[in-house]
Nucleic acid binder design. Structure first.
Lengths: 341, 341
DNA sequence: ACGAGATAGGAAACCGGTGTCAAAGTGTAT
DNA sequence: ATACACTTTGACACCGGTTTCCTATCTCGT
């Protein structure tokens, strides 16, 4: 009963089982070269003592730890949280844990801060969420420091082992297809902020789709947003105040779509009767506003899971995927355009 | 140049500086008994080599690591994320990191899972978010395992060193005061789910406030919700379909308030002209629905910061607070009741 | 100049695991 | 019975820090 009050170590197990530390270590690590008898005996002692290996000691001896990092400056809380859950799906029942690190994209010291963080924590690998995932210097930093990394993005902007991406471009196309099928011809767009790859993908996807249908996109149907609610309000306001306003607006994310809905309401423009609105992301807000928003959703959780697996089990077949299909979520913000058009 | 490609260790520093490991260790740990010269010399070498102490080795030697855990099953993503940022505010520039762990409140194995997690990761301490923060068995588990913990709650349900709490009860009272001042007498409530301490605090606060104003709360003005959007839709539907419907509804959280707004719209009941609605939490959705929701917000980020400090720097004066005042956020979902009432 | 007490710094053990390599055990063919 | 190959196990060093304990040096009062 000498050490009944402190957690048992590998030595305690070895002594109690009458074997060497190394043998216990072999049992823990499921080494193949062990007699069944010995394994059983040691396992019994482990269970009896309630022994759990010390991760710090393991990390030291193995010269690598079991910590994954999540680097993000994503403004959408639900996205971040879904991603966290997806990562947890992948590492549940392993010894890995997830460390979070929000970063400030606007800070000039951002890269330096991250370098410091990586040096200090010596993570096994990091997962990087957009928009900072688009920063190539950051990826270079990870490579330089020998830290595994996987970037999440709207397009394949790195090798497939380092990326999980949605096919935003195609999905915007199908959103536009849907609007056109519903009878719309005069379709406006609220773009995302410059410098965001996703914003670029979405607006280019939009332009390409419109071109495909032989529809013009005059400058007066294009408004610039910042991915934030208020910017959607402003941008939709501009669009709706044009001489000839659009019958449908594609918003590059749901927050801005919510703002656009708001702008329409202020102007007594009824959605979807007078104006159709389509968003992007399928964030929770999309289902909780009126009318419920038709939008494009992507499988964040699956992407997160695959991203984590790329780091912790790169050979796993589930870690091979790197392009994930988004899908159109039809709700009630799209209808055929009013007759007069 | 023997080891120019791998990260330097304390031994490398000691050798390069011509001192012993222990002296380097003293420099790192700011030990007082060191000559200035020696310190300077070692610091120069550390800077030159870019030496950063290995946290795993430190953790092993010190028998404690520098990892804080965040246990949550909170359905509100923004709350969780704000909390994470608050914790990061507190531990930025320290060697601590934050490990997240969403848990499943409904799983019968929840406690066992958490025990396993704590055993395996040997965290320095955990921060627990509502609603599982209300689980006393979980707190007991932390104590049993010698793991520091701080619970976040709607009422002081533990010693002050283990809790950060908002004063929901009082805040609901001021929300009701506000409704009464606006002229409302017939006020309904959508309660949160049973078993949630916050739901209890809020509904009791509501009852107490009504009593204070000499107003009755007949059963027909009370509806049960689950904190989810859909339940707000249903519950508000019931309330609005009564013979004599309320002129105002207090919703125990914003999601349900959004649902209530939705229910009102379906019935062509105009908010706030015909019906006032007040929510709780000041979640982002509150500002992004129409009309913008009057609600009660609490300072999550400050609470998170204080909670983290309680673990990592219990002596810090900022770690002493444990009750945090919420405040009424007035937007546009409350107006005087219609004349006919 | 000298001894006492304070101060600076080092040697070696330790934290709890893993890797290496050789020794011991086992089984089979000769 | 012996040699040989193969399996199973253990001794010991090591990962990179901290702690304990001890010695060498430095002040300082007398």
């Amino acid at each position: 009963m000498a050490s009944s009050n402190k957690t048992p170590t590998i030595n305690d197990v070895a002594r109690a089982a009458g074997v060497s530390k190394k043998t216990v270590s072999r049992v823990i690590n499921r080494s193949a070269l062990l007699k069944q008898d010995t394994r059983k005996k040691v396992e019994a002692v482990i269970a009896e003592l309630g022994y759990v290996p010390n991760p710090q000691a393991r990390a030291l001896a193995l010269r690598r730890n079991f910590l994954l990092g999540l680097l993000h400056d994503n403004p959408n809380a639900q996205t971040v949280l879904n991603f966290q859950e997806g990562v947890l799906d992948a590492i549940r029942d392993t010894e890995f844990a997830l460390v979070v690190r929000p970063v400030d994209r606007h800070s000039p010291k951002m890269l330096e801060d991250i370098r410091h963080f990586l040096e200090q924590q010596r993570l096994y690998g990091v997962l990087i969420l957009p928009p900072i995932s688009e920063n190539d210097e950051l990826a270079a930093l990870c490579r330089e420091m020998g830290c595994g990394y996987v970037r999440m993005g709207s397009a394949p902007l790195d090798d497939e082992e380092h990326i999980v991406a949605s096919n935003d471009r195609e999905m915007v196309e199908s959103a536009v297809d849907y609007l056109v099928e519903s009878g719309h011809r005069r379709i406006g767009i609220i773009k995302g902020p410059e410098g965001f790859r996703s914003a670029l993908e979405r607006s280019e996807g939009f332009m390409a789709a419109m071109r495909k249908h032989g529809l013009a996109v005059p400058a007066e149907l294009v408004a610039q947003g910042t991915y934030r609610f208020e910017s959607g309000l402003d941008a939709a306001g501009q669009l709706l105040d044009r001489e000839q306003r659009p019958t449908a607006i594609f918003c590059s994310n749901d927050e801005m779509a919510a703002g656009a809905l708001h702008a329409a309401r202020q102007r007594k423009v009824s959605v979807p009767a007078d104006l159709s609105i389509i968003g992007f992301d399928d964030s929770p807000i999309a289902a909780h506003i009126w009318p419920p928003l038709t939008t494009v959703g992507w499988p964040i959780r699956e992407m997160a899971k695959a991203a984590a697996l790329k780091l912790v089990a790169p050979a796993d077949e589930r870690a091979q995927d790197y392009i994930f299909p988004a899908r159109l979520v039809q709700r009630q913000s799209v209808a055929p355009p009013p007759d007069k058009f």
